[in-house]
Design a protein around this nucleic acid. Structure first.
Lengths: 370, 370
DNA sequence: CTACTTTCGCAACGCTGTTGCCAAAGTGCA
DNA sequence: TGCACTTTGGCAACAGCGTTGCGAAAGTAG
């Protein structure tokens, strides 16, 4: 519990806040006075802060708005090329690397097959070479020899320690138990590395880039693919818990003494949901998923549920409709008019890699932890 | 999203942080240098902050520590009488009012029967008179004519809007629907009033006063009485959600298509748990409760589960053991050595009223929202 | 062209935490 | 008893934050 804030901390906090508003405004930009209204700071303070950001090359003036009877407002815009980050998604059998600019937009992308059984050193080396190839290929402008890269974010499934960047367990590959992936890759590449669960990365990407952000500060991202997991965003920040264990959604028990799950428990939502998918009964799978989503939504009072993963992508309509129906039914029973809205998460298969890059971009915008 | 921080905000933030550490230290006190270490501020900054606090009468010097080879550290202590708050617990059939000092200790207490069916004005008037009687009786010292009271915190069951202090619904008494309790009581008493759910108040009280705090910043308080609810503390602050709806634990479905619940759904944990209690099967009730607790603990990665409420108070051992067994079993399946610890919440029947008083004290210590 | 509105920077200011320095108050050893 | 040393904590000067007062800049409206 540090918490003490000095003047340096105050400056960086307010600068991050302004930077976040610039990022949110996107290409449309935002005026100084609007920044002042949104932050609660005085216009003069915003002028000073934006002057520093412009001096650092993070923001530029970009045109003017229409006049409302006086001097028209000058529009400020984030400079996308002021910083970049690499996002690495280590999936079961594929590695995906993306290079993102400061706005989170993907500039370059590479994909390659991945074999986690090839040995830890080989995998780290292979990932490092993919990153290097990605950066080498992305230098299109001749004079941009030194592309400013903030670091590499790595997202992968399975339990791990986000704070120390250590893997706990990778299903099927015991040799990875306790591997300090962050430090190994950071040493190899010479850049900062951040490691997180794939669902957390996807949720972060949605919180910062997706349509989710504008409407809601708290939402759950439910990922239904080969497994079932969740990423939680509470108050605009990813909630990981003390041990990066938060989001354990798939082994929520929704049927006491139900059918056995591979985890050893009975009646886990993952087992029930995947069994229904295997039977081809998407309506039942959606109903089970919706039950878990309603449990979660009631517990945390979130604003939105986003669905993703291969299974959802293959059958979006029944899942959105089925999950929404369960949430609406429970909301009506509690007296509310409408339930929590349900949507398919934008971003698709690239969402996790994009979110992994955001692991390094988010701190710039004050979106580090909760 | 205001978020912008100026120098005034910085000062109050750091002062609240120091006050919180003084509160945590209790009667033992804490030295300036220790405050500096814990906050991350320089010793000189802490000296200035504590000087302001002493000038305001919130802190005093209280003795010295043993020397470690130089000048001994001066110990600072919070002044309990520098502020007071009233906590009001409106239970089903009883009103409980407590007067707490700045440390949260109960100075005076009153209990009286409560009939929510007596009409809204009569109930508000009755509650106001209880508060006045409590304050009048507590003025023991002659010259303490004006006891500094920060305000009144009110805790009651059922859905409500914490932010606006408006009740949504009181089971069995439709006349209370939409009643602006906060404003009505504040107008009548002339002091600030804060309203919250009983489970949230209890959780806040545990976060600030209980033994929970020292060990864990995130925990769930599960209340099993006439109903089943939860209060969540994440990162030291109560998580209420956007609509004060968080903590809806009882109608979590843990048995798809299970026995019907009074809420209209099927297989709710509340229905299953209370049915087992009615049968006298506490082991089964604890197993059901433990399943819900494990779902919650996995989802949020919390550090501790605290159990409370009349039913738990009547049979503490089987509940602690049964819930703990489910949590331990799931932790073992996930590879962890030990599960989340389970304990009976201290405070007993008075915990909710104490937590209600903390609704006004907590903001002084920077524990307002998450 | 003038009056007015609105935006936004310059300069002075108050206040924050920080730094350099020194007095205060102990311990430990000769 | 006296001196050296360690540690605490206040005083004063300082850099840097956002704020305030004021005026220049850049439009619109008549």
């Amino acid at each position: 519990m540090a918490g003490g804030v000095n003047l340096l901390g105050l400056r960086s906090h307010n600068a991050a806040l302004v930077l976040d508003l610039l990022r949110t405004a996107g290409e449309a930009g935002i005026s100084r006075l609007e920044l002042a209204e949104r932050t609660g700071l005085t216009p003069q303070a915003v002028s000073k802060i934006t002057a520093r950001l412009r001096a650092d090359g993070l923001a530029v003036e970009a045109g003017r708005r229409a006049s409302t009877g006086g001097k028209p407002r000058t529009v400020l815009r984030l400079v996308p090329d002021a910083g970049h980050a690499v996002g690495l998604h280590l999936d079961r059998d594929e590695l995906r690397a993306v290079l993102c600019d400061l706005t989170g937009a993907v500039i370059a992308e590479r994909r390659s097959p991945l074999d986690l059984g090839a040995g830890r050193e080989a995998v780290v080396e292979g990932a490092a070479r993919e990153v290097e190839a990605l950066l080498a290929g992305a230098v299109r402008v001749p004079d941009a020899a030194s592309l400013p890269v903030l670091g590499v974010g790595v997202a992968l499934p399975g339990p791990l320690d986000h704070r120390h960047g250590v893997l706990h367990r990778v299903t099927g590959f015991p040799e990875w138990d306790g591997f300090p992936l962050r430090d190994a890759l950071a040493r190899r590449l010479g850049t900062p590395v951040v490691v997180d669960k794939d669902t957390n990365a996807a949720a972060l990407g949605l919180a910062l880039g997706g349509a989710a952000e504008a409407a809601s500060a708290s939402f759950a991202y439910l990922h239904l693919g080969t497994g079932l997991g969740a990423g939680l965003v509470i108050g605009g920040a990813v909630h990981r818990g003390a041990r990066t264990g938060a989001g354990e959604f798939g082994h929520q028990v929704v049927q006491l003494d139900g059918p056995p799950c591979h985890c050893g428990d009975r009646g886990c939502i993952e087992a029930l949901c995947l069994a229904a998918v295997a039977r081809g009964d998407m309506a039942e799978a959606a109903r089970v998923l919706g039950t878990g989503a309603a449990n979660l939504a009631g517990l945390l009072d979130i604003d939105l549920v986003l669905l993703g993963g291969r299974t959802v992508a293959a059958h979006p309509e029944p899942f959105v409709a089925g999950v929404g129906a369960v949430l609406d039914a429970r909301a009506r029973r509690e007296g509310s008019t409408g339930g929590v809205p349900v949507r398919v998460a934008p971003g698709g298969a690239r969402g996790v890699a994009e979110g992994a890059a955001q692991l390094l971009l988010a701190p710039l915008f004050g979106r580090a932890e909760d």
